[in-house]
Write a protein that binds this DNA or RNA. Structure first.
Lengths: 264, 264
DNA sequence: CCGGTTCGTCCAGCATACTGAACGACCGGC
DNA sequence: GCCGGTCGTTCAGTATGCTGGACGAACCGG
């Protein structure tokens, strides 16, 4: 029985633990973003032996997955290559870029494509309009599903039992912004509205002064969760004249990306 | 195809070999792009034991770095997150997006930012103009340095001894297109011209009907090679009126990205 | 329908990669 | 300038993950 202070064996300590640990290391570096981290700090955060971390970091550095910065480490360029290769393998991403720029009204704003993963969404593609919305979220960024238009649109598409499973044990929600849902009940009512109406709305839930319209898009990837597209714009620009046009564009985009017939 | 005995990866069979192998596996999947690969094929291509591969792939799958597709594996979504985190840590990439879209003439075309790595360039950022050039190269894509404007601009910035070191042992070059340099001598003359003129030109060396202007940008990343920015456009649009404006924009972009004073 | 091939998975023994502590270098504070 | 703390690196012993072969399933051409 491991009654000692074992903090990090929640995951299945599977075969090839070095690989699992390497992935954890990369995760820590992704949070730390630009600043390099040394073996000691990594060992502290992950609760793993320092020398093991050093060995793995050395191997990661040789592979180009991390860069040595002085005596520390940071994410390496090879990750951009691999990430790009992944995105290139998702045909909906390629199609998104083609279609998004041709939208009459929406192409002026920020259009995004994301996939639901648990209770978070990962953004896979983005089209920047001429409007400088200056969203900090870029490709690969993860955000809570319940406070974003993409996430809520995707959640609303889940079968009831699957939704219950994911929300099990939750009653209150962390509030990234004052207007975001604080309780699961509030979120559920919103999801019901989304199902009726056909699109999700993020009214300053993510950022003050910014609204977002989203709609669900079925994923073509086997085993992946539902995807979603969204249009983000300053609330000032979301006038009663433009919003219907934006929603039309959103529906058009969703129809194109849902269409199973794509390039050969 | 893999001719007889795949050359012994004389690379340091270092500590934590599982990590090194995992990186090799990811590399194979990146080449294979969308189609999933099974343990047997991976073992064949890498010359490694089949069961080891299976173990590592299992760990990679648990970490989200690869996806299980039936019984095979393909690159996973987590790579997009990590790649995005890496790109987010390179401040020149963020600045590139800001500046590229504000360029009067160049913003109409495709503007790219890349970093030199050995004799190849890796593209880190891209701004798509309204013109549908339909470049297939996306973020993370690698291309030969000697046949691209970005690569030649970066190569031309290297000190002579460093350039000699990288070109050592080469006399002829693979030709990705009929107009690309066939010999190292031809490349060297081009590089000399680039140094005098201050910018590189790719005149249908990468793709027929497409020209590209590039200029070197010093990297701010410690230990990284030189970077470069480029403007890509259809040769038909590269008229004698527009080219000077494009070169001005390119110089402006390079000046901004070279400027050491950036956001806090 | 059937035999040959190739696939992915499983298992036990062995070699090897991981662990923990000790070492020297470095930094900042009293 | 001294000293406590922290850092990254090193090394040998041992537990541990890796290896090769065997197993059953799936596929395909005969």
């Amino acid at each position: 029985m491991s009654n000692e202070t074992l903090e990090r064996d929640a995951e299945a300590e599977s075969l090839a633990p070095a690989v699992t640990r390497a992935a954890l290391i990369l995760g820590v570096m992704a949070e730390t973003a630009s600043e390099p981290v040394g073996p000691s700090e990594l060992a502290r955060r992950l609760g793993l032996p320092k020398s093991s971390i050093a060995n793995i970091c050395g191997a990661l550095a040789d592979a180009g997955l991390v860069r040595r910065i002085g005596t520390g480490f940071a994410l390496g360029r090879r990750l951009a290559e691999l990430g790009g290769a992944y995105l290139g393998s998702v045909d909906q991403v390629q199609e998104f870029y083609d279609v998004a720029r041709q939208l009459a009204t929406a192409s002026e704003e920020t259009v995004q494509f994301a996939v639901l993963d648990g209770l978070e969404v990962t953004y896979l593609a983005r089209h920047d309009g001429r409007q400088p919305v200056r969203l900090t979220s870029g490709i690969g960024r993860r955000l809570p599903a319940f406070s974003t238009a993409t996430g809520k649109a995707a959640l609303a598409s889940l079968p009831d039992d699957e939704l219950d499973r994911r929300l099990a044990g939750l009653t209150t929600l962390p509030q990234p912004s004052p207007k975001s849902h604080a309780t699961v009940d509030s979120l559920r009512r919103d999801l019901a509205t989304i199902r009726e109406r056909g699109y999700a709305m993020d009214d300053e839930e993510t950022m003050e002064g910014v609204v977002c319209f989203g709609t669900m898009i079925p994923s073509r990837q086997p085993g992946e969760g539902p995807c979603a597209a969204s249009i983000t714009l300053l609330k000032v620009r979301a006038t009663s004249e433009r919003v219907p046009a934006l929603l039309d564009d959103l529906r058009l985009l969703a129809a194109e990306l849902s269409d199973p017939l794509h390039r050969t």
